[in-house]
């Protein structure tokens, strides 16, 4: 009961915030509405007994990535963006397309079954070894290779950004 009420609250706020993000005229407000959104996503993670993921969600997304977003948006010239009308001629094409895709999504969701098999990390098991310990163990044994690949990809992105930003040495 408590869990369900919690989920309904978090999900509602997430959807409302997401709508606010795409409907605000001022891009800075859009970015700021993503902040409660991320916090509520973290709330859902906590309800799923994934405290580590929740903390990292706030730390990485809300604490680092959104700050950079805010930076970029603040420094851009937002006056141009503001005067452009939100609803225009292109909506006659995009709106039906989006609605169709949404219809497909609903159709699939309604027909799906959600009874997956239970893995070895049940709530009790995670509580016993500790949340971050459990993630660490899995990450550095079973998923070591994907983990390393992910870090290499991030490194490539970083090198790319530095090369783009660096002044030419002529």
């Amino acid at each position: 009961m408590l869990l369900q009420t919690g989920f309904i609250y978090f999900a509602t706020v997430i959807v409302v915030c997401a709508l606010m993000v795409i409907t605000r005229k001022n891009p800075v407000h859009s970015v700021l509405f993503m902040l409660p959104l991320f916090f509520h996503v973290a709330g859902i993670f906590i309800m799923l007994n994934a405290e580590f993921v929740a903390a990292v969600q706030v730390l990485v997304y809300a604490g680092a990535i959104m700050v950079l977003f805010l930076f970029v948006v603040m420094l851009l010239n937002i006056q141009k963006e503001r005067v452009r009308p939100r609803v225009g001629l292109k909506w006659t094409f995009t709106a039906p397309l989006g609605l169709t895709l949404f219809g497909f999504l609903v159709a699939i969701l309604v027909r799906s079954q959600y009874n997956g098999t239970q893995g070895s990390f049940t709530i009790e098991a995670v509580k016993q070894i500790g949340n971050s310990q459990a993630i660490g163990q899995v990450l550095y044994t079973d998923f070591l290779f994907p983990f390393e690949v992910a870090s290499v990809i991030l490194l490539v992105a970083m090198v790319g950004a530095i090369v783009l930003a660096k002044k030419r040495l002529d």
């Binding site: 580590f52 903390a55 990292v56 706030v58 971050s132």
Partner: peptide, 8 residues
């Protein structure tokens, strides 16, 4: 992590 997340 909780403290670090909030401090950010």
């Amino acid at each position: 992590l909780y403290v670090l997340a909030l401090s950010s």
